[in-house]
Design a protein around this nucleic acid. Sequence first.
DNA 1: CGATGAATTGACATGACTCAACAACTGTGG
DNA 2: CCACAGTTGTTGAGTCATGTCAATTCATCG
Lengths: 235, 235
Amino acid sequence: MVKQVTLTQAWEGDTDCLVCSMRSSVLFSGLTEKDFESMHEDIEQLTLQPGNVLYKAGDLGHHLFTVRSGLLKLVQYLPDGTQRIVRLVRSTDVLGLEMMTGELYDHDAVVLRTTELCRYPKDAVSRLSQQNPVLLKDLMTRWQKTLTEAESWITKLSTGSAKKRMANLLLCLIEDEDSSECFLLSREDIGSILNMTIETASRTLSEFKRTGLIKEIRHNHFQLDISTLKAVVAD
Amino acid sequence: MVKQVTLTQAWEGDTDCLVCSMRSSVLFSGLTEKDFESMHEDIEQLTLQPGNVLYKAGDLGHHLFTVRSGLLKLVQYLPDGTQRIVRLVRSTDVLGLEMMTGELYDHDAVVLRTTELCRYPKDAVSRLSQQNPVLLKDLMTRWQKTLTEAESWITKLSTGSAKKRMANLLLCLIEDEDSSECFLLSREDIGSILNMTIETASRTLSEFKRTGLIKEIRHNHFQLDISTLKAVVAD
DNA sequence: CGATGAATTGACATGACTCAACAACTGTGG
DNA sequence: CCACAGTTGTTGAGTCATGTCAATTCATCG
């Protein structure tokens, strides 16, 4: 069960967007210096801790966010009360894009690992996007990317046997392209991503450990045998 | 197995967009009459038959489409060769939106029922969207809607027992808001939507028939007991 | 330490898959 | 119109994967 912490109003203004190391990879790479001047006083940043809830499904919202570092889950609830994680949001991802076309957030956004966020008023983004075609294109690309990933979530994490889904998840969780290491989530979150019980998640991981597909370097930190995992997926 | 029919170049020009009965519900409701004049000679329409393939994943494309009537499936392939249907596209839906930000189609688009389409050159849409903020907003809304539906596909059609997923699919397939009737797809397509074998699909439907959840009016045409189906989902 | 919650493991039940037989429907040619 | 073949859908029996419930170990933190 996730603790729900009410957010203290701890957003900090005075961000220095022009020197942000993420500018090139984040949504606003197309902004001119002038654009930034007009906007950057509206931008605030914040650090959140695991368990914190950024917003809840149905909340009225006026901001979208970019993730500078960390990890969040987006959760939706089923008619029978169970929860399903429909997206993971990581460094350079955008969050709350639904604010550009609506008023209410679609998910619970819950922090899984210490997370640094930037927050943008939707009106400012909306205004700028109508002036700046590059930002506009970025927004569209962002939407399309999110959609493609949602479909990949369907094919990779919701299709096939428990073993295949788990192998796909492990491959998705690799932080660093070059490396082959990843941190795992709680068994409960894994279950809620892969549509399986925590026992099946645990058993599947144990089997992967036994057969050498993964090696536990530190607690919940694994080294993956990538090529063999890919073989499991393609089998 | 789906027959793959090469499309004859049968697109018809000379569409009459201004009087199109779908204008208000389709993507281009925000266009002025002047916009339409500049564009409507680029718009073509076509009718396709079940089994026809509109485009394939990886195809280079220059058009997006709106569906006037009918039904298509969007299919993706898994590393192990199995196929999964990730979206159904129906009347008033837009198809090939990925052309606005890329060059290649993301899916196989296969016709399930006789389908009438309109086809728009992506360059024309791109140009118009930069001049007309209403169209722009429509495009964004469309993306967001597609994304929301993809996530609903995850929660409703990829989560829970075979029975629940099937009940959700039936509720999704109702054509007409007021009515409680729906046409079913082939067992193979159902399996490829719900991640189950055709045998399980068939058995689940048989059980629904036996217990009165659905009644077969005509071949593959069913009357649904909506409230009981919803109870199955929420159980 | 001891207390708490998370993860693992075992035994068992059950849901879903596999393989196989058969039935229903479709289209073709005689 | 019928006979036939090919396809699609249904049903049954047995197996395997996953869920359920319970007991135990492990990790974390006061």
